[in-house]
Design a protein around this nucleic acid. Structure first.
Lengths: 107, 107
DNA sequence: CCCACTACTTGGTATTGTCAAGTACTAAAA
DNA sequence: TTTTAGTACTTGACAATACCAAGTAGTGGG
């Protein structure tokens, strides 16, 4: 998969996922992988950044299947950012697709 | 505009533009700006890279409106790359949009 | 007891876009 | 004729984000 296309979009996908319900890192990787190829070394630092930027709060929960899980919960600020990114993505992808369409017409 | 979204897509837009007809750098900047915000310091190095990768050939043409213009012409290899990038973009943007749609349904 | 799976961290690297500054040429206005 | 606006391109330092590899550590089953 084209690495460059993912830039910035991963943040949106992660915000959208966590906005549905609180999630822990490993769970998120499984979820996000359904949409785009991604590896763990990308998601964990992203979660850390989004937490530092106050888009997520975190809490720990014991697990019977391994080490305790760090759950991420979206904040008000995170929801705002999600909506902004969403609008920005929709504008962007629409204008790119429109351009592609025009090129195809004039073939 | 979100800088990250552009990564990789600019290459596609430039390939598509030049595939329609030969273009020089400055002309291309005007064309690409209609789709996404972009500055000259981004396009010229990109053109150089695409030329190094044999996606473009170049030739100079005198101009009455300033210094000579370096025209870019797409190669066979460039057309192949364009089609691949196009398919890749369409797959990518569709799967992202599908994910967004699913999130919206479950609100 | 070791292995597979879960869960997370860290550090180095690659790619690509931005910004700022600079070179240089032409034509028209002051 | 000097200045200004517009055309045309180059370069180098910088920022953001994704990848990869390696490492730490807990749990339960063979």
């Amino acid at each position: 998969m084209n690495t460059q296309f993912k830039k910035g979009v991963l943040e949106l996908i992660v915000l959208l996922s966590v906005s549905k319900h609180d999630m822990y890192g490993y769970e998120l990787i499984m979820e996000v992988s359904k949409v785009v190829d991604v590896n763990d070394g990308t998601i964990y630092p992203l979660l850390k950044r989004l937490t530092n930027e106050r888009y997520f709060d975190t809490y720990l929960v014991e697990s019977t299947e391994g080490p305790p899980r760090k759950y991420y919960k979206i904040t008000e600020l995170g929801i705002k950012q999600m909506h902004e990114l969403l609008k920005s993505w929709e504008l962007f992808s629409e204008s790119v697709n429109k351009f592609i369409k025009e090129c195809k017409v004039n073939d």
